[in-house]
Design a binder for these strands. Structure first.
Length: 490
RNA sequence: CGGGAUAUAGCGCAGCCCGGUAGCGCGCUUCGUUCGGGACGAAGAGGCCGCAGGUUCGAAUCCUGCUAUCCCGACCA
């Protein structure tokens, strides 16, 4: 806890791992690739969940819950889908343990083999569409707008806390619609929800776009995404929203009676964001002193720290801070008064900086005498002394300013690191500098693969509001309809 | 799945080459002094040295096998 973080400039990856551990966000568990999300980290995720859940409900969705286990046969009903996920599925084959005849604890009971293996869901399209089949009879049952909060398992070769873990928490929306247009509109609507959340709450600028065929979700007709740029110049896919066409309806035979009495396959979407957003949040704002949280998602927006000598002074100052804390709470601000006498104020300052608390208020004897309070903001590390009278209004506007500043700072960085290039040499140079690279591409998977192989860069997305001036492919010189965004990515 | 490394107290590590009954820092407990940026002193508690074999009078240390984790790649939200 007392050790300093490796600076970002020295080893970004190391900095990230140390930050996650030291800020008490998560730790590795004894199970490979799986993490324990610690209370402070989970509190941030709970804030994200609660805000997103509200946004989903505002857009007409309801929550439900589907099983963790999926019969193996379901997974293979949609060809592209199983192709995409088969390599990373955990499979349950037995349902009972027994005492080891040799006395070494318990072993799998070989007589308890399942007739059909169960796959631990890597995503829930199949089990959900198999259920929707029974729920949807008529156009009157549509649209069906359901979300679930769940854990999923993808047996990844290589994992990183929050960014890629074998088990992760997420939400997955699964909707059914009467027409293609409605489904596309839904997928786009949820993409907007994600983008609004990213920018409005996480203070993380994102580019909205559509994935190339190579990067598309297994079983989708179109994958929309939000892409964010991290401080080290690598891109991170922060959320996806898929237009699934009629693929799953066809695979699970989900038909509805149309308004004119016919039978038609329903149109589908699915969309999700995961605990990966925690990684995005960390890598967007944090610095060498630790985590930096946007006020809107901080479990603690303001921490109050007393500075004192002796018990009498402590009592006096804590009482004054308590009164301020109550006023802040009454104004709807999440506060913590840290009157723990076993830790010194200097230790607390460092600790709350590490944990990214946006605003720190400290009061010592001089403040008490002079009617002031020390206000320190985490984003710029600036400190000032302000009158304790009217502190609530001051803090409110400061929190808003910090929220805005974080977004502006991240947006400036994203813009500054984005390159627009027209030659292969410039393209390589831009990739090496880091950031998004806006360039022309001939639209073929072959060229995309080639570029990936040669540069490790992928097409992050074809921006929805991008530059649609035609040009020539950066690699092949073939005609290109519009610029796309390349980057090296997580 | 390839390459590299590691496994010793809650955490971070030393000890291993050269075998002799386990040590340091942080943290933890108690007491005292401190307190405007990670305090100081004193006294304590805490370890099947990853697991299983082998060599030896004796293994954290040498040998064999296994397991797990981390990092770097290929694959992915």
């Amino acid at each position: 806890m007392a050790s300093k973080l490796t600076p970002r400039g020295t080893d970004y990856s190391k900095w990230y791992n140390e930050l996650v551990a030291q800020a008490d966000l998560a730790q590795h568990s004894d199970v490979k690739g799986c993490m324990v999300i610690k209370p402070y980290g989970f509190a941030i995720w709970e804030r994200m969940q609660s805000v997103l859940d509200g946004m989903f409900k505002e857009t007409g969705h309801v929550n439900a819950y589907f099983p963790l286990f999926i019969p193996k046969s379901y997974l293979s009903k949609e060809a592209a889908h199983v192709e995409g996920f088969a390599k990373e599925c955990a499979v349950v084959t037995h349902y009972r343990l027994m005492n080891d005849p040799n006395g070494n604890g318990v072993v799998v009971d070989p007589s308890a083999k399942l007739e059909e293996e169960l796959v631990v869901r890597p995503t829930s399209e199949t089990i959900i569409w198999n259920t929707y089949k029974d729920w949807i009879q008529s156009y009157r049952d549509l649209p069906l707008l359901i979300n679930q909060w769940a854990n999923v398992v993808r047996w990844e070769m290589r994992t990183r806390l929050f960014l890629r873990t074998a088990e992760f928490l997420w939400q997955e929306g699964h909707t059914a619609h009467e027409t293609k247009e409605e489904a596309v509109e839904e997928a786009r609507r949820m993409l907007d929800v994600y983008a609004n959340f990213a920018e409005g709450w996480m203070a993380m600028p994102v580019v909205k776009g559509v994935k190339s065929v190579n990067e598309r979700f297994a079983g989708a007709e179109d994958t929309y995404c939000i892409e964010a740029m991290m401080q080290d110049g690598k891109a991170l896919q922060a959320g996806t929203s898929h237009f699934l066409g009629q693929n799953f309806a066809r695979a699970f035979d989900v038909k509805f009676a149309t308004r004119d009495g016919g039978q038609e396959l329903v149109w589908a979407t699915s969309w999700g964001v995961s605990t990966r957003l925690m990684g995005a949040l960390i890598m967007t704002h944090s610095d060498d002193a630790g985590l930096v949280l946007p006020p809107k998602l901080a479990p603690i927006e303001v921490v109050l720290v007393p500075i004192y000598k002796g018990e009498d002074q402590m009592a006096e100052i804590v009482a004054a801070l308590k009164s301020i804390a109550d006023d802040l709470k009454a104004a709807g601000i999440r506060v913590k008064l840290d009157d723990d006498d076993t830790k010194r104020s200097g230790w607390k300052f460092a600790e709350y900086e590490l944990k990214g608390v946006p605003v720190r208020l400290a009061m010592g004897p001089r403040d008490l005498a002079g009617g002031t309070i020390e206000v320190a903001r985490r984003d710029t590390k600036e400190k000032s002394y302000v009158p304790s009278e009217g502190i609530v209004a001051h803090v409110q506007s400061l929190l808003a300013e910090i929220q805005d500043n974080l977004l502006a700072r991240a947006a400036a960085r994203t813009t500054e690191t984005t390159s627009v290039v027209d030659t292969w040499d410039d393209f390589i140079a831009a990739l090496d500098r880091g950031g998004f690279v806006s360039a022309h591409w001939d639209g073929t998977s072959e060229t995309e693969d080639l570029i990936k192989k040669e540069t490790k860069a992928t097409i992050r997305c074809i921006p929805l509001d991008g530059d649609t001036t035609p040009g020539q492919c950066i690699r092949t010189g073939a005609p290109s309809a519009q610029r796309v965004l390349f980057a090296r990515a997580y």
